[in-house]
Design a protein around this nucleic acid. Structure first.
Lengths: 235, 235
DNA sequence: CTGCTGCCTTACATTTCCCTTACTTTTGCC
DNA sequence: GGCAAAAGTAAGGGAAATGTAAGGCAGCAG
């Protein structure tokens, strides 16, 4: 699994020009960002930020009902997310002021889409690099980088087979994975005769990821067909 | 089931040059795309799009009776399909304008067929990657990868036999499938004596896929011959 | 009208998978 | 080599999936 989890970070764009707003939003979405939200004023931005807890904010300096700097100060009241400023002018003064407030980067309009993407990716990488991509399940999360399940703050280690099984299931999250496919994923060439063993592993995985292992909601069985890993449903 | 369902996406090509149009269409068809439609003007394109609900549109920027940008705006009135623009000029301005409208990619004429194919494949993969191929019926859809029927937004699970039956019917969608063939598909070598059981399954499937199971429109019976799965008719 | 065919429908019986658990064997590390 | 953890095995039990059977209903032929 690649570092695609950066593409799933919540991004908030704030600009008073609707055209630019949709332009930038579309550029980002096209580049694979999945959670891009927009606001066209100070007030809306604040509201959006409170509601969606962005993980990166791209703020225009000029807003109809306030300045981007003021907005950043307000944001800092409840979030430490990185910030990239957009400004029409290229003045040193703005730059200094922005960085002084803890901005992470700065772009002067008009800018090239490519450069914006590059800078956003850089900020996200910098900010969230040490994080491992977590797979969110209903009552728990899986950290494949550490081979751990996190439940109620507890870190529960995964064994080799459990890891292999969960990987295979995760690669096809939501889809049915047949017993055969799972056995092949775990035992390779000669996957026959391990069906029972597979069941034992499924049970052990359930004890780690499920709140109630006997009534699984994340790793569900589809009788006669296989198993399915259900990711946390997002609202 | 492979990812070949991307090759079955409905593609609409719009260009005023007939030669180029057929050339590109043939390139696509030769690469395995099965549903490529063409239009040579703004008006025709709009009509085609309304009729066929394309899943990817390739639009020339210059059209005799309007611009590709204008066309995209109209398309956005009823579809969110991805769009690739073709343009004679390579100007940044056009590029920005296209992306601003939500275009997904952009190619400058003359282009290499290989590159076009590559970009189209990339867009389709990106847009539809997490989707499973869905079989569209009249009041519902079947997701074989998840063994589910989707009706009114509800996800209704399929059992193993139901899955096998629907697969067999789907493989011969629109054609009559005999009782014998269905029994063989489900019970293999020794398919005799299960006719009654088959009926029970048919009934249970109908309860899942049909709006009114007693008056089926998707899984219809052909008295004395067998059953038939009717796909959603596309206007 | 009567009986017949072919399928529908429903409720119920049966079976098949899978779960669960405890136990044995294997692996890998000290 | 010894020990703990991981992996594999086996058997009894249970619930959901499947199979069965009987009563209907519609259409059709005589």
């Amino acid at each position: 699994m690649s570092a695609d989890y950066l593409k799933q970070k919540r991004i908030l764009l704030v600009d008073d020009e609707p055209d630019l707003l949709t332009l930038v939003a579309n550029i980002l979405r096209q580049d694979g960002y999945t959670d891009v939200r927009t606001a066209d004023s100070f007030a809306n931005a604040l509201h959006q930020a409170e509601v969606s807890a962005p993980e990166l904010a791209v703020l225009d300096v000029m807003l109809p009902d306030g300045s981007g700097f003021g907005l950043l100060k307000r944001l800092r009241g409840f979030t430490d997310c990185p910030v990239l400023f957009l400004t029409a002018r290229g003045e040193e003064e703005d730059r200094i002021r922005g960085f002084g407030l803890g901005a992470d980067d700065y772009m002067v309009k008009p800018f090239s889409p490519r450069e914006l993407l590059y800078r956003i990716a850089a900020i996200l990488r910098r900010t969230y690099r040490s994080e491992d991509p977590l797979v969110e399940l209903d009552g728990s999360r899986i950290d494949f980088a550490r081979a751990e399940v996190i439940r109620d703050g507890e870190q529960i280690p995964l064994t080799a087979k459990e890891f292999a099984l969960l990987s295979a299931l995760c690669r096809n999250a939501g889809r049915i994975v047949t017993i055969d496919a799972l056995c092949t994923a775990v035992w390779g060439d000669n996957p026959y005769g391990y069906e029972n063993s597979l069941m034992a592993h499924i049970r052990r995985i359930r004890e780690k990821i499920e709140t109630d292992p006997s009534h699984p909601v994340s790793l569900v069985t589809v009788k006669g067909l296989g198993y399915k890993l259900i990711l946390k449903s997002r609202k």
